[in-house]
């Protein structure tokens, strides 16, 4: 066999192998380097100087300008407490507390991560300082297509959605340690068929 045959085996295996391995590492939008608290997932180091090469690639590909962990930590959650995907048809109660933060914001995104706009006249996201808290500093927030008394975040759309929570000026991710924080539960109250 001519040596060109053997050389081409090396090159073909090299090209295909590297292509497939790079693609599979970057395909998963949920980074394996993150942090998970009560089903809320974050990748706090991805934006800053401590990001590893895979995180840098994901940032570059997505065209985003991530906040670094000193400024804010961004959490995503796609499921309720039972593990079911969040759905626009349903009513949810988000409860308890988000501790160790100056303030936080909460908004809805679709499966591609795009912000979901609410009906005309409603705010696009929830700002923690606008919530009503009880005497212990806990809150109860209703997520529903129908109006509710108390803290209510209207949802409008079809199919599934995800929640994005950003905690600003929080010490929960410092250089090496991860501080305790409580992140809220999401209970499904009811879910009318179709």
């Amino acid at each position: 066999m001519p040596s060109i045959f053997y050389l081409s085996i090396i090159i073909i295996v090299g090209l295909i192998g590297s292509g497939l391995s790079v693609a599979s590492m970057l395909k998963n939008s949920t980074s394996p380097y993150g942090l998970e608290i009560n089903q809320w997932r974050a990748d706090p180091k991805s934006g800053g100087l401590e990001a590893n090469p895979y995180q840098r690639d994901l940032t570059a590909i997505s065209g985003s300008l991530p906040l670094n962990a000193n400024e804010a930590v961004t959490f995503h959650r796609a499921t309720d407490d039972t593990g079911e995907r969040l759905n626009f048809r349903c009513t949810y109660k988000i409860s308890d507390e988000i501790s160790n933060t100056r303030f936080w914001t909460l908004n809805l995104v679709d499966n591609q991560g795009r912000v979901i706009k609410p009906s005309e006249g409603y705010n696009i996201a929830l700002y923690s300082q606008h919530l009503i808290f009880d005497t212990k500093g806990k809150f109860l927030l209703t997520l529903s297509p129908q109006p509710h008394s108390g803290n209510w975040l209207p949802i409008k759309g079809e199919g599934q959605f995800r929640l994005t929570l950003r905690m600003y000026d929080t010490p929960i991710v410092s250089n090496s340690e991860i501080f305790e924080t409580n992140l809220p539960n999401i209970a499904r109250i009811h879910c009318p068929e179709s």
Binding site: I11, G14, I16, G17, S21, D57, A60
Partner: peptide, 23 residues
């Protein structure tokens, strides 16, 4: 070939942000 693949993998991952026209 596999060794070459591993080497290329590392190189691609390291230089990709600089060449991404999407960043």
């Amino acid at each position: 070939g596999l060794v070459l693949a591993a080497l290329l993998h590392v190189i691609i991952i390291l230089v990709l942000p600089n060449f991404s026209q999407n960043n």
